[in-house]
Design a binder for these strands. Sequence first.
DNA 1: CTGGAGGGATACGTAGCACCG
DNA 2: AACGGTGCTACGTATCCCTCC
Length: 761
Amino acid sequence: NPCLPSQYHSLQSSPTISVSVTEPHSYDSQDDLRPPGYYSSPGVRPNGAPTLESPRIEITAYGQFPEDEVEESSLPVAKRVNSIVTLTLPSADGYRDPSCLSPASSVSSRSGLSDASSYESSFSYNYSSPQNSPWQSPSVSPKGSTLALPGDGYASGGSPRHSPSTSPRTSVTDDTWMGQRGSRPNSPAGAKRKYSLNGGGAPHKHFPYSPNHSPGPSPQTSPRLSVTDETWLPNTNQYTNSAILAAINALTTDGVTDLGEGIPMKARKTSLEHSATVSLKVEPGGEELGPGELCQDEHPANRLPLKKEAYCGGFLDVPQHPYSWTKPKQYVSPSLPALDWQLPSSSGPYSLQIEVQPKSHHRAHYETEGSRGAVKALAGGHPVVQLHGYMESEPLTLQLFIGTADDRLLRPHAFYQVHRITGKTVSTPSHEALHNNTKVLEIPLLPENNMRAIIDCAGILKLRNSDIELRKGETDIGRKNTRVRMVFRVHINQATGRTVSLQVASNPIECSQRSAQELPLVDKQSLETCPAPGGERMLLDGHNFQHDSKVVFVEKAQDGHHLWETEAKVDRDVSKPNSLLVEIPPYRNQRLSTPVHVNFYVCNGKRKRSQYQRFTYVPASVPTIKTEPHDDFDGPLVCGQQAPGLSLLPKPYYPSQVMTPMMASDLRPCVVGGGYSVGQQSALYTSSENCSVCVCLEVKAIDHIDFKSIVVLTYMGDRIVFYHLCADFHGVDTTFEVPSSLNAPFISPRKENSYKIIQFV
DNA sequence: CTGGAGGGATACGTAGCACCG
DNA sequence: AACGGTGCTACGTATCCCTCC
């Protein structure tokens, strides 16, 4: 409805949101929520790349639109055409939005993630209410809710469709797209794949103004366009009521509750800013926080340590204040690092470690499916995480989210979310929270448990690629992007008032059914490096190895073209489905002066290849680094994903990359580059808290880097200083400007290139 | 009996490839 | 030989079905 100001349309709770003249950023919840100062400007991703504008569909109208289109002036002139209505797709923000925070917001508990269910469990430790309250939206239960979404005509059973009540999502956008999606139906219940938009099977055909009949480009071209049937019923009561409700919601800002599940971030923020009526339930001991203060307290566990006394009893009995729908905001805190920031796994006495790694395969479930359970550990049981070095008596909160496992810096995975598992088999209480549209599971770390948590409450939810790829600013693609890592964080408040944040990421987890069944996967490799002549034997542990599996070593140039490829000999007699014994082939050049990084993969067939695994050929005089093939590793030098080199590698065998002090000494002869020797073991430790440990096999002086995580090495005399640059270098061929912090005092004036950018190995 | 967990199957869309002009 | 169009097919995704517990 072009007559409505865009702010009304921005209410996702209204199915009328779609037809609007939009401002490019107006729906960017991420921008809105991102704490100021995290990134340089709105609309700019951490890597500096501009965000994409929201997808649009322009519909040529037959009639005249009002001349006073709101925000028209903010549009480029080219867009200010009266006869064109630009539809900014609400996009899939909703899939990172509280509305989709819990796919189990359906009535069914199949997905087990109902917001409300967070409080139905035996969850028994105290979170301050800002975390609690927002998630109890009544709208999470379509059946139970009597608060119909504006325009949500089917919520009370009036739908011509047969599925809404079983739809896993409350998103109006979602359901209203039934039958209009270009791809799949949303509803698992009775939805058939063949969905004739105009045929008899379409349940919408009674809507005379279906978008299918639009004279303009059909909205069906985008599944994310929330042009609903209702939207196209300009004269129905349903529509009218929707519009009115939407308008009321927008004007009162506090909306009809957190129904708000469907309200996009823009609306939330606006509401928050305007709302003096926001009322939050505060636990004893907490302070009532205004909206601004909420922003300072993203993580209540920091300031309001967990209390173990049961407190939830009766909590559900108290009707949720209908106006406390400011939930996304409260997790935005400039005082805590964003989820895509790289954090160390250890700092000072503290060390966060994954004691038991998850299995390398875990089939994620779709929103339309039942839960596929918690992520398991390789040897049965579940992953275990422990915080070492913490001697206080205050419990802490362990955060868990699903991160990427590609060769870029760790960040929340766009296509997967952590999924809260509850039930009698689950021993660990947990709580769902939301950080910038990424679902985060919060788990108590209790001193009496030695700050150790068994992660039996975390499953993995797969979001549909088509939904996510259309999100504004989303540049990742979902196809074949099925590997994730479990990322754990803890924030420790110190007496000084300083907060130490630690993070550790698990080994990669393959989440697709097919890949898990067919693709070979290398969990571990017994050898990291080998002299150029090769000949040494390397044991690969993994999955889906076949009798005729091949192991291929490749070397690629920076531009991607193959420099070298050779097949390694596989000892067929020893090899098993989960292990291969291969002989390292000789490198193409036997006269190496510096180590050379190559890759290898296991191949079961034409397209059945494992991820690239990293391998390094070293000059023949350099001793080989052998790694301990064990899962559990400890010691303060564990890198987790923070060691930048790890993020370079799509390699699951992280333990192998852990540098122990003993190994460091072994390595001493290797740590040479450009004629500079790092002869002191202490040089292998970073001087920065943001870097856990670094082991340098190769030191290069380079001007341009094409890897994403680097360390700058400076020296003065024999003193070596490492800087871990935490800036987010996405993109390839990033030109790196040496920061001013690396200035003269550390640089020998007598030498050119008196700083070095080195790559972790 | 209910529903979660989890394995298997498969419709559908499409990326990638072969073939042809 | 290079290029573009077309058709085929294997693959990946998303969903459905089923059994077990």
